[in-house]
Design a protein around this nucleic acid. Structure first.
Lengths: 232, 232
DNA sequence: ATTTGTCTTTGCGCTAGCGCAAATAAGGAA
DNA sequence: TTCCTTATTTGCGCTAGCGCAAAGACAAAT
């Protein structure tokens, strides 16, 4: 698989890059494909590489000492992830990256990117911009987790995922088919598999969604929005 | 109040700055002092300035549409905050900054810092490094909120605060006196004022802490650590 | 078609923690 | 000192959501 510069410019950090710089990145990087369920890296590994997802879907998850897991973020194609190694020496990945669909990624050495950044402010600035986005998103999720009830969080998460996926795939169809297990969704919303299952069953009954094994499709996003926004 | 370069180098992002650059920053910035309870800025305001806390203590909090608040982060002296404006045009603050003690900050225009960053990679890289730290911290808090019980979260928060404060003040005394209301602590841990009160009362009874009105001192940090780490 | 493994559903009991209300305590101001 | 405001404590009832177990559904492999 070859990457055109046009493709790579979909990556926010590379949007303003010169052709030469993109050339450098692709020359120094390599492609890596893994199957559903496999990992790009594990929490605690030395952060030697950063990744740009080309196809598929990847979840970043963090596990606590006692073994429970939370889903920090779900990566869509053309997102850069695991970039922290580029700015911190001897960092280790704070999360594991598992493919939830067969996935391919462009892999670049952290220290190579780090060198590039020293002489190309646009790169460092772009990376900072990316990080502010991430911070804002996780802060919002944190607030939701702290203040909202499970039902609202699940609704909001479904809507968020639908918009992320709808954005990355060009299919602007109203109802996107999403592939997630109940367990995945539980980890994303900070609840349990059982509660997710119960909630989705309820919603399917009243026609808000259409759900199956590892598959959810939103039928009435307005109805979900109403649930997500209900103040009490 | 004047800021020596030595002082400013305590700020991580400025650690490697040249004297000239520090000069520029102080010349283009100004000091702003506010009293306990007042705000440096509010969520939703245009992010025109970034701040470096010089003295006091500030909490960054986010409020949801329905009015509930969470404490995103607590700022200690020599921390930079509200830096997102420097990399995003037309951004608005995603949180409000309220002084929980009388505080003073160095205030710098976002677009001035933005310009500096264009020609000084160390600044952009330093800012990115700062952001990765923030991301890691809030991710950890997110995981805790999702997987741990209230008791553990309160214990962990107390320990974290104690270490942060102990770090910024040079007093390496074993037990730091912390000034927080029960409400503050509730917002930091994603619980309610009542639960915090009950928990602290319990801990005071068994000698882990010493608490008063808007005041907490850890007496037995080992005991707290044990609570924070208990896996069940 | 049958088996096997995994994912999902659902019933059931339980409890951590919420939320209200009322009492109490601690400072600060007059 | 006394008053006033604000923070804290504590009792009490309640429920959202957890966690287990067992059954059911689906998909892939043989």
């Amino acid at each position: 698989m070859t990457l055109s510069h046009h493709d790579l410019r979909q990556v926010n950090v590379f949007a303003e890059a010169t052709d030469d710089d993109l050339q450098l990145v692709t020359r120094n990087g390599f492609m890596r494909s893994i199957e559903e369920g496999e990992y790009f890296f594990f929490q605690g590994d030395p952060a030697e590489y950063l990744y740009v997802l080309i196809s598929g879907q990847v979840k970043l998850m963090q596990s606590s000492p006692n073994g429970k897991q939370v889903n920090i973020r779900t990566i869509q194609p053309w997102e850069m992830f695991a970039a922290l190694g580029a700015v911190r020496k001897d960092a280790t990945y704070p999360a594991s990256a598992q493919a939830i669909q067969d996935s391919a990624a462009l892999v670049v050495r952290s220290d190579f990117m780090s060198e590039m950044m020293q002489t190309r402010p646009y790169l460092a600035v772009g990376l900072t911009r990316l990080m502010t986005t991430l911070i804002q998103e996780i802060q919002a999720r944190y607030r939701e987790l702290a203040t909202e009830r499970v039902e609202q969080r699940i609704a909001r998460t479904l809507l968020r995922l639908a918009s992320q996926i709808g954005q990355s795939s060009e299919s602007q169809t109203t109802s996107v088919e999403m592939e997630f297990s109940r367990q995945d969704l539980a980890e994303m919303t900070g609840t349990t598999l059982f509660t997710v299952s119960r909630t989705l069953s309820e919603w399917e009954k009243i026609g808000l969604i259409d759900a199956g094994r590892e598959r959810i499709r939103i039928k009435d996003s307005q109805g979900l929005t109403k649930i997500a926004d209900q103040s009490e």
